[in-house]
Each structure stands twice: as structure tokens, then as C-alpha cells.
Amino acid sequence: MQTSELAPALPALRQTPARNWRDLAIHPLVLRLVSFSIALALWEYAGRIPLSPAFPTFLETLAGLGSLIADGSLFKAFMITLHPLVIGLAISVVLGVGLGVLMGLHQPSEWLIAPLFIIAQAAPLAALIPILTFAYGIGLTAKIMTVCIMAMPVIVLNTLGAVRNTPQSLLEMSRSFLATRSQCIRLVILPAASPMIFAGLRLGCAAAFIGVILAELLITPTGIGDLISYNQSVADYPKMYAAILSIILFSVLFIEALERIEHTLFRPETRA
């Protein structure tokens, strides 16, 4: 009796481990780890050929990173780099989202302001850095300006597009249920626009990181830019690459954190 009941279940039982193994192999987390491992293994291999005497292996870079952390120079450099980055980013976010929303709601101001940002987005803005240096000197102001001109166009234009793309039916709905203009903006337009605004903010943050490193490499070497250019000049390539790696990691984590904040604060429906 018991065996006959078990018999049909047996093939299923035999298949289970295999299916589990396959499930595990295509699990997103596993695949991401595999992707990282392949990239790092290629890096290690390229360093060992060696591709160039100025190209350290991944493990050497890790060691360099360890010593930068140990002597505290990495932390100090980050503090210096974050200064213009945070100020520039704060200005870009507040002003950028503000201008974008204004233009999205008010056609004449779009015609007035948008062309500037469309040009700024298309132009190779790094070429403006010498002019900024000329105008604002080599201090903090020029670096903040660099961060702003890199980050702001994408934030402004995404916000503008987001506000413009509010579904027509939601606008009609809010009007038919007697929303005032300010209720409509606060309760319908901004929430509807927030995913695209945040997409712009993520792109803007990435651009701000590029901006601050450009400024530190091109204006005066400070912070992470200083670590990179100094170690390059003394041919300590593992440390140079460690500095580059650390700013990339930081940027990725920062943007990831921004996405988390967006989901917890603004998109309750996307939470599990």
C-alpha cells in the first residue's frame, strides 16, 4: 500500500535535486556574482600577462587599497572629494528638480530655459573647465561649478519630461474630482513624475561623480583625484588603481542607496 503510493512520487523526487541545482544556477544573485568574478578574473589575468607594466593585477590593487585604508589616506581623500561633490549635487538636485518642474508646468519658462540645458547636455562640458578655472580660480567654487554643469542638465531635462508625461487621464480625473491646481501638482503630477525624476537623479549623480573627479584631475589635484595623479606620478600603480576602484565602488553604492530610498519613500506599490 505504502510503496504503491510512493512509487509515482519517486521520479519526481529524483528530479528535485537537479531542478534545485538549475534554479540556483540561474538565480539572479548567483549570476551577478558570476559576472563580477569573470570581470575580476579577466583583470587578474590581464595584469599577470602583463598587459602593461603600468597595469597592476586585481590582487595587487586590493593590497594597494588595503594600505590606503590602513594609513588613513583614503578616508582623508574621500572627505576632501565629497566636499564639492555634496554641495554641487545638493545645488543640482534642488535647482534642477525645481527648474524642471517649473518648466513642465509652465510652457513659456520651458521655451526660455530648456534650450540652455539641451545644449549643455549635448556639449562636451569638460571643455568648459578651463573657462571655469579662469572665472572662478582653482578653489572649491570651480569644482562645485564643474559638478553642477555635469549633473544638472540630465536632472533638469528628465524632470521636465517626467512632469510633461503625466497621464492625461489622471489629470482629467483630478480635475473632475475638483482638485485645485496645487492639489493636482502635489497629489497627482509629482507622484506620477517621481519614477522618471529619480531616474534623472541617478544619472545626475553618476555625472556628478564624473564631474568631481574631472575637476580634481584637471583643476587642482585634491582628494581622490590627488591620490590618483600622485600615485601615477610616483609609479605606484596598485595604489592608483585602488583609488580609482574605490571611487567607482562608492559611486555605485551611492546610486544604489538612492534607488532604495526612492522605493521606500515614494513608490509604496513597488515594495513587496
Partner: peptide, 25 residues
């Protein structure tokens, strides 16, 4: 009061908030 062909619900709001939206306004 209007009932829309494409429903016109706010995707970020719960059923409760959507239904109460006219009163909220």
C-alpha cells in the same frame, strides 16, 4: 462624478486612497 474608460487610478495609491481621493481633495 466621472468614471473613466481607462480607470484613471493612481498606481502609487492603495485602493482605499484611490476610492477616498475625491473626498481627500
Amino acid at each position: 462624478a466621472f468614471v473613466f474608460q481607462d480607470f484613471a487610478l493612481m498606481p502609487w495609491a492603495s485602493v482605499m486612497r484611490n476610492v477616498a481621493f475625491g473626498l481627500e481633495l
